[in-house]
Design a protein around this nucleic acid. Sequence first.
RNA 1: GCCGGGAUGGCGGAAUCGGUAGACGCACGGGACUCAAAAUCCCGCGGCCGCAAGGUCAUGCGAGUUCGACUCUCGCUCCCGGCACCA
Length: 852
Amino acid sequence: MQARYQPAEIERQAQSHWQAHKAFRAVEQSDKPKYYCLSMFPYPSGKLHMGHVRNYTIGDVLTRFYRMKGYNVLQPMGWDAFGLPAENAAMANNVPPAKWTYDNIAYMKKQLQSLGFAIDWQREFATCKPDYYRWNQWLFLRMLEKGLAYKKAGVVNWDPVDQTVLANEQVIDGRGWRTGAPVEKREIPMYYLKITAYADELLEALEQLPGWPERVKTMQANWIGKSEGVEIAFPYADDHAQSLKVFTTRADTLMGATYCAVAAEHPLATRSAKNNQQLATFIEECKRGAVMEAELASQEKKGMATGLFVIHPLSGEKLPVWVANYVLMGYGEGAVMAVPAHDQRDFEFATQYRLPIKCVIKPVGASLKQPLTGAYVEHGISFDSGEFSGLNFQQAVDAIAAALNKKRLGRKRVQYRLRDWGISRQRYWGTPIPIIHCAYCGDVPVPDEQLPVVLPENLVPDGTGNPLAKTPSFYDCLCPKCNKKAKRETDTMDTFVDSSWYYIRYACPDQKRAMVDERVRYWLQVDQYIGGIEHAILHLLYSRFWTKVMRDLGLVKLDEPFTNLLTQGMVLNEIFFRKSANGRITYYNPADVEISMDDKGQRTCAKLKADGLPVESGGMGTMSKSRNNGVDPQALIEEYGADTARLFVMFASPPEQTLEWSDTGVEGAARFLRRLWNYGVEFENGAITAGLQLQKATRFEIHSVLKQANYDMAKHQFNTVASAAMKILNALDRMRGVKDDVAKEGLSILLRLLYPITPHISHQLWRELGYGEDILDAPWPAVDEAALEQDEIELVLQVNGKLRGNMRVPREAAREAIEKMALTHPSVQKYVNGQPIKKVVVVPGRLVNVVV
RNA sequence: GCCGGGAUGGCGGAAUCGGUAGACGCACGGGACUCAAAAUCCCGCGGCCGCAAGGUCAUGCGAGUUCGACUCUCGCUCCCGGCACCA
């Protein structure tokens, strides 16, 4: 056995051992329960970042843990290989996205392997290969047949200089990222997937996902945004046959409506603008603005009267119609009834434009203080509302809906916030949409036997439009129906399509003739899915939808794709920067900054190593290129080894929380592994047997810690599992030089506890110390309850809830006896000090609280 | 703006059902070993008062419930994630 811990050597040996034994190949077998553990596959951006290391270490810990627990485990890996960054890199380096992507995959695969993950590499695939994306195309065609895919106009960001569609990310402060030209909105035809057809099921089924974090389920539920309300028609004042439809969840406030507001894109706005130049200009201005909701919702409220009026459906009052930039065309009817007294946005708008405010709802058993300083938005009691006065929220909604129904001017209905999924992208590096445009036959689906529509891999985008649209060899084709010359669709699919079902394909990646086969039934659902919290809504919702579509097409027998979900937190690092006189900010990598401390360990200053001058700290932020605060995992692995990297990311914080990078924390992890190795060496050379007292205390300590670790492991709280391992080593360290059954048992527990986190060192010590050939299939250690038995337990003594001392009592002591002992205890008597005792609270096994 | 989450010593974090706040680690201080340094080992380590015993304050801020609150309720502040074409 090596005297010193040499991670590079140990890790090389362990990894070649696993490779030689094909240790991680997953085969369908029925004598064990299966466990499919999946981490979100990476985008091949170039090299691994710390988020990957964290994500895949969590997955690997669970995979190895479940294997020890007797499960038949599968942990696959692949590449989310289509996407925008490949096109950007292609432009920058004048190299096709395909080459860039494949090179990145090769490099990142090596990195993943050097981290020692227990991955079944036989199942690896990349989504940019026709073998995979042909099934995107195939399923799209099935959805088209079912009416689940359809074409309609959609709005995109248009760069008028580059003549190209921009992603939201490429729009910076309303301008194109390359040209700086103000971005315009443009309507173009696009394909949509009808996710709204599944809105109710996607919402209802959240209740059947006990293994999902509550916060993710809440976010999805809010995103789907089911609301029950009333659709109300306001007849036009100049034409009673026509009406303006609005949707509201607050029909109880209808009698307080003082105007209506429509979105800039609403037909009524367009109509009024025809002979109103000022209004037309205003509408143009609104339309030019942001596409992104975050921007729309935070912009200053603006509006303009249309000059049109509608009739209040119950009171018959004439109400003005305004165009307002806070009304979204994409939700409900694109029009709202405005009740300034009881809606904050309406209140602000009405105040700004001096529109009337009419109060109709007051708190229960109180009156409403007027004039209002803000909207009263609570559910209350109606007043000044004619026949509806005195009703509560539900009564008022019901009565008003009934009254509207009678006049045929309204009805109750359900509204969702969720919109259909637009999948068309005017970009090259994605799955071609399998449609052919024929001048005679219209849009014709590509016949199944002509799939896949293969994406050429040799194009280089230049930033002006989609290269596919400039490549006749791609788009020239014949119409499958009439055989005349036709043009292939050049839009590609959103990359979320690729990631919506890859977890199914891992079960059968080599299946050439079908999207899925019978192996899918064995492996799916995914038992544990792990990925960043940033995917809580879109990716996870699309995947759930896609699974349900596949189910309804008879392809899989799954209602939901992921049984358990773990959403890992982001990886942060400190941000250092300098601001120059003209306000320009330069960021410096933390690795290039030297921190000075005073003798209390508090920071005194931070200086750049290069010039010794101070830099400012911007606090902690997510690791990003733009802020230059990333840490390269490669350098870390080379300096300390994979086990140290893995231990650090597991130990630094619980998996769901953000993780703050710390160089000294990494050194701490490395130090622990050195100590472990040194202990292994000393144990091997040990000769003596510990005394009975020490043996008993050590076993008690180790088994208590193990019990806690089992609990933490079940909770996926790996940071405390790592500290359990440290506690066990501390306990073993107290009997250094000892080689007896207790030390032997303790070390075997320690190695197995640590193995999922730091597999290489555990593997090596397990073999070197003669525990067995391979720790891979060793059983997870079991707690010996007998080691935990104690004759006496310690109770805490409190007086009025304040800690005043403690006492030891026999394990089986009766409540009365404990009370008596507590009351006569000197530290209790001192504080009771003769005062009358009101009550004594005894919490068995924990404490006694005397209340005076 | 809307939706979701977070805040505990100098730092990362722990505290299972409301029951000893600060486990484990880092940083720092003192000591041992060493010609010296690194590595390693031992001791200390929330603030304030105190020689000590001990006391007292303390889990972002402000209220409340309770014998007892990091934990539950209400109201704030700041930070982070998402907002439908980044993945």
